[in-house]
């Protein structure tokens, strides 16, 4: 067990956790930030995607001890009122079905656009391949991302 002070969504949180505890469970269980989802616990589905210094990481496979002073952004902090261009596009395109995978999808897409504001269709597919959607919303995810990048 050790004490960690984490920078999350521009705020500072202090918590006690074993060093091997994945960031996912720190967020969900210790800090009650439950917008980040558990899907596989093994880096295979992307449901747990958050940003570490703006880059997408799988929080289920990222131990809290490796965070250090790096800034974390979760879906709760992506925008003030859920109005990030991608969050708006997600609604305009009616992307979500059950919605469970979508916070991970949005976080992954936001990191992609930060890196590559005008991705091609193939680049979107490649960047999003780690994010599973069992409801099968892929075609709408893609058009939502492309609509934002074309704006």
């Amino acid at each position: 067990m050790a004490e960690y002070t984490l920078k999350i969504n521009g705020k500072s949180y202090t918590t006690n956790a074993p060093e091997d505890m994945p960031l996912l469970w720190v967020l969900r269980d210790l800090l009650e930030l439950r917008g980040t989802k558990f899907g596989c616990g093994a880096g295979l589905c992307g449901a747990c995607t958050v940003h570490l210094e703006g880059a997408a990481i799988r929080s289920c496979s990222f131990p809290v001890s490796a965070v250090g002073s790096q800034a974390i952004t979760t879906i709760e902090g992506l925008s003030e009122n859920g109005d990030h261009p991608l969050q708006k596009a997600w609604q305009e395109h009616g992307v979500p079905q059950c919605g469970y995978c979508q916070t991970g999808q949005i976080m992954n897409a936001a990191a992609l656009l930060k890196q590559n504001p005008k991705p091609s269709e193939t680049e979107v597919e490649k960047a999003m391949q780690g994010n599973l959607c069992r409801c099968g919303t892929y075609t709408r995810i893609k058009s939502a991302i492309l609509s934002v990048s074309n704006d």
């Binding site: 009650e32 439950r34 917008g35 989802k37 859920g82 969050q87 609604q91 009616g94 979500p96």
Partner: peptide
């Protein structure tokens, strides 16, 4: 459009695994 769209996109939607 679905009534839960905004909650889902902003991470506020509550699933069984989120109950507390």
């Amino acid at each position: 459009p679905i009534v839960d769209g905004h909650n889902i996109a902003s991470g506020k939607a509550v699933y069984g695994i989120d109950a507390a």
